[in-house]
Design a protein around this nucleic acid. Structure first.
Lengths: 249, 249
DNA sequence: AAGTGGTCTAGACCACAAA
DNA sequence: TTGTGGTCTAGACCACTTT
């Protein structure tokens, strides 16, 4: 095939979407739809290149974008794999608790409650779902050693995690790996708004602190590979023992 | 030149550092040392390729890494430029204030004090400077409309910003563009620790709120292109009107 | 030894911006 | 029209992992 674009047509040129971007989207869609599941190995770059009728370099660039988005992981000599949202990864990515000025901290689950209910109008709007959406509401308290660390209230649309309530054992430490394993939903982005508030009676009781103590309140919207809202979450953190840590680049 | 590595030698292979990485480091160092200054255009990819005795593709990949680090900006048809830390960029990158659940907010400076003093042992340690380091201490209050928004205490080593105190007019809205323009220091990374605390008398007075009101306290370490610590900063934010916003990916 | 991703080169052509 | 970055291809070889 001569140099230049592989499938040059008028419509291609008008759309002006680079080939590697199209290929990347196709791959992302396949993964989103479960064609390749968590931890699974993708075909090698030359095979994919054949499938898409592009050069290996173009596939390579497409995979590079997926890798930077955290969708796949590539290991020299082994292959390209759909990222597995392990507990470790999920925690250190989306759970930003740390000792003041120091190391990140990994709390353990302590107690949890789950119920099914209708979403409010406001919640529906935030979730981007219309009408009578049903949601699971999970309230969970976490501990670090002897100390209560956080109280989280999570809201998940039932159609995303249909079997959540029938779960007999305790919920897993981190929910995102569970979403991925069970429902193929990959949490890749979270938007957070952080405020300082005084602990309500309920929060104070859960965290075993005096009511009125200042705590961090983090409001999160979690998004999947296609940027759909997967979860709403409001967490209260003890701030005397722990900080919220983030790196800006 | 035949395909394969351009300058294969035994030592190269032992070091095992990709060419594009070496080229990237060289370019970063040049920019750090002021060889190309803020806003300046770099030579085009082919010229750089000649200078470094590598192919254009290798230079291209190196520039790609610099771009993703925020060191350069590339514009099709125009060229590759050293990133200018404009007020806009600096603010929306490193100043994470937002309306609760909504749009980012850009506060204006209200008042400021600056003095020169010795750094404490602890500060020296955090700054990574030894002995009797002198620092500028700046305290600045910011407003959004009618409301006080934040009180920041900044610490900058004098040797990084030698002429800071002699500045007669008010400090610029954002300091990082000023650091870059005046001293060639490019702030690229900030590590932040966020806590909820009750406002001290001093903070309450500055923010015009009741003492004891919960406020966000953000402790920042700012790093430059070579990851040196450029600034320490502790900020208190009103949290009833504003939130700290961040996206995790 | 075989298979995978990683690096590097060389060259053609496209898209955009400014003269 | 010229010069810049952006895309795409083709092919060689390197480095790592597993068989």
């Amino acid at each position: 095939m001569p140099p230049g674009r592989a499938t040059d047509t008028v419509s291609d040129r008008l759309e002006a979407t680079p080939l590697y971007r199209k290929v990347g989207e196709l791959l992302a869609t396949r993964i989103d739809e479960g064609f390749w599941q968590a931890g699974e190995m993708l075909p090698n770059e030359f095979v994919l290149a054949d499938q898409f009728n592009v050069s290996q370099g173009t596939v390579r660039k497409a995979l590079g974008t997926l890798e930077s988005r955290g969708i796949v992981e590539r290991r020299q000599g082994r292959g390209t794999f759909v990222t597995t949202n392990t507990d470790e990864r999920s925690f250190y990515h989306f759970f930003r608790l740390a000792e003041p000025g120091g190391e990140r901290v990994k709390p353990d689950p302590h107690s949890e409650k789950i119920k099914r209910r209708k979403a409010t109008k406001h919640e529906q709007q935030q979730l981007g779902t219309a009408d009578n959406t049903e949601v699971f509401e999970i309230v969970r308290v976490r501990v670090v050693g002897e100390h209560r660390a956080s109280r989280e209230t999570m809201l998940i649309p039932c159609d995303i995690a249909p079997t959540l309530q029938s779960l007999k054992s305790k919920l897993p430490n981190s929910l995102y790996p569970y979403y991925q394993q069970q429902f193929g939903t990959m949490v890749l982005r979270a938007e957070e708004y952080i405020a300082a508030v005084t602990a309500s009676k309920i929060v104070a009781a859960a965290l075993q602190i005096e009511p009125g103590t200042p705590v961090l309140e983090v409001t999160r919207t979690a998004h999947d590979i296609k940027d759909r809202v997967v979860e709403l979450r409001v967490s209260q953190f003890r701030s005397d023992l722990f900080n919220y840590n983030v790196t800006l680049r």
